[in-house]
Amino acid sequence: MLELIWFILWGLLWAIYFVLDGFDFGLGTLMPFISGNEAERRTVYNAAGPFWDGNEVWLITAGGVTFAAFPTAYAVLFSSLYAPLLLLLFGLIIRAVSFEFRSKVDCPRWRQLWDRCHFIGNIMPALLFGVAFANIFQGLPIDAAGVYHGNILKLLQPYGIVGGVLFVLAFCMHGAIWLAFKSAGPLHARALFTAKFLWGWVLGFSVLFLLMTYTYTDLFAKFITYPVFFMLPITAVACLAFALVMLFQDKPLEAWLFSAGYIMLVIFTGIAGLFPRLIPSSLNPDWSVTIHNAASSPKTLTIMLIVVIIFVPLVIAYQAWAYKLFSHKLTDKDLASDSAY
């Protein structure tokens, strides 16, 4: 029972992370294409301004909780995905410093340099997360001792690439919707248009990804035993549809919430199909890392559950308050403030 709760919490933390940092990745990836001048570029930066740092902590928490609840999964997963994970972390480092450094020197070439870094620092983690999760869904070549027999190129097979592209597209749409919510005037109109444009691509790649999931992985085996699980991908697609409806009504906040629902449900579709495995082995099903052979002791799981039950709702409450505090549309006055990026 404890292991099951922790499996769901594990999925939930990753899902929250993708919903929150996802729009940051989208903003940074779209920035060179969607903004026409310095003021618009700064609007894109400041749309993520007060949020990205707190969003990133969900990644640390997801990583930390994987370590605490499923130490073997933590060890096997991150040593297996050594190169992509480090590339991803370097991307996050570059993203963070581009936020901080860019505004500190008023020189066009300095800013251009950090704009480029910012783009790479956002698109690279988004892509690599997609590639990594698709490969986890498909199973990693790990042996009985959890040792990885592959390399970074093996991850870039068709299913992994489609997963990566889907993540990038979904995050870009998610980010465009957030930008529509946070901006006014021409940038708002462009963000709305971009979100609608990307919507079609997200839908297309979602369907492609689901079909490939059926052929490349065994995730749907569980769905056939428990057809109720089909509600997850169906609701995901429904959320996507509602997001478009809200975009046409120019209600970006509602559209963003549906887009958030879509991202969460896509992650949970994968998580449900994985259960009870955390990392399936593509070499031998018996070598998979599961909640049974990877979990911490009941004592540790109980203590961590108490911590999470107290603190995660508290964190969500004060982060929601902070989101509300900074939910206004960005104006020239905001950009002129000496605290703006």
Binding site: P50, V57, A68, T300, V307, A322
Partner: peptide, 27 residues
Amino acid sequence: KYVGDVFGPLLAIEATVAFFLESTFIA
């Protein structure tokens, strides 16, 4: 793998209890 049961929670608690507080309120 060997010590995660004892060591992992300390890192997880650090993130849950401290990092969120720091990063949210600095904004």
